[in-house]
Design a protein around this nucleic acid. Structure first.
Lengths: 97, 97
DNA sequence: TGAATATATGAACATTTGTTCATATGTATT
DNA sequence: AATACATATGAACAAATGTTCATATATTCA
């Protein structure tokens, strides 16, 4: 690995890890592992207000970790990256030791 | 995975990911993949002052991601966790897509 | 013991970050 | 068109974070 990595890649990776580095966002990601969910559904699940969730969803969307799909008035979010599960799993493995 | 996870574990995982969510820290971790390094060596490598590096090393140490070893006046840091390499590798895979 | 070298630490400061509030946008229904 | 519902967004604020500076601690060597 080492040789191919330049500063920019590590910088970008740090940006990516910021998505996982917040309780709200990692809980959102975790809640999407099993299935897609609407914004209000997530807000209820995490017991937080809708605006806070929307703000965080945008961050996750910008990082290309989740995608959205509209169905009438409702917008459903789901995971958009295979690494999400693995990254969370590795993190949990570490903290559970 | 889903079922076994409670809020605390996700909270702890978020704390862990904070270590990877900063340019300086992820560069330190990356620099330690190949070999152990002294504080000054890391500071030189990253072109940052020694104090800044020491502060970040403490955070990584507290998270149990690195360990230290003294040899005379010099303290050598090295990785202390198998997940570090994998977590960084997954992150890089995502950003390189 | 005193000087030199390596690392650690506390305080201060500027910057970044997450949430809330108010409100805007978009869609469906009557 | 008017209303209701779902989501998005900008501004404001408090809290958390990363770096710098000054200085403390620890070790070696003369």
């Amino acid at each position: 690995m080492k040789q191919e990595i330049n500063e920019n890649v590590l910088f970008d990776a740090a940006e990516l890890f910021k998505c996982f580095a917040d309780s709200t966002r990692i809980r959102i990601l975790h809640s999407l592992i099993s299935k897609e969910r609407s914004v209000n559904e997530i807000a209820d699940l995490l017991n937080m207000n809708q605006s806070a969730i929307s703000h965080q969803l945008r961050i996750l969307k910008d990082a290309k970790l989740i995608k959205k799909r509209r169905d009438g008035k409702t917008i459903y979010y789901s995971l958009d990256d295979d690494h999400v599960y693995n990254i969370i799993a590795q993190g949990i493995e570490h903290v559970e030791e």
